[in-house]
Design a binder for these strands. Sequence first.
DNA 1: ACTGTGACAGCTG
DNA 2: ACAGCTGCCACAG
Length: 110
Amino acid sequence: MENPAHRRVIAAIRAIPSGQVAGYGEVARRAGLPGRARMVARLLADNDDPGLPWHRVVRADGRIAFPAGSDLYLEQCRRLRAEDVQVEAGRVRGMRPSPSLDEHLWGDPG
DNA sequence: ACTGTGACAGCTG
DNA sequence: ACAGCTGCCACAG
């Protein structure tokens, strides 16, 4: 069964262009459902559509959501690399952790 | 209604 | 960058 909110999330995931990634919370936000990151995760877990680019959804810090070494982890890693996405230590390059208070106040000294 | 769990996020040390 | 804690939402028992 599918709710209107579910369709939004699925659409948001399908909207992620190849070679790019988005966080769970990001997807939820784009779907007009701020704070529903867990919902995105649940939908993906329940998802059956092989055409859905689920591999483009990662954690907010760019890390793969699966435990390192697991089948799904390896699969996602493989798919991302197939799209020329730099993946290192289970983490996607280009994503950066949320700015800490220090960096936010003082700025990045570089 | 309460509790436990999970493909999460944000802040703090 | 890493670990710990808290807040959050949805679902199953």
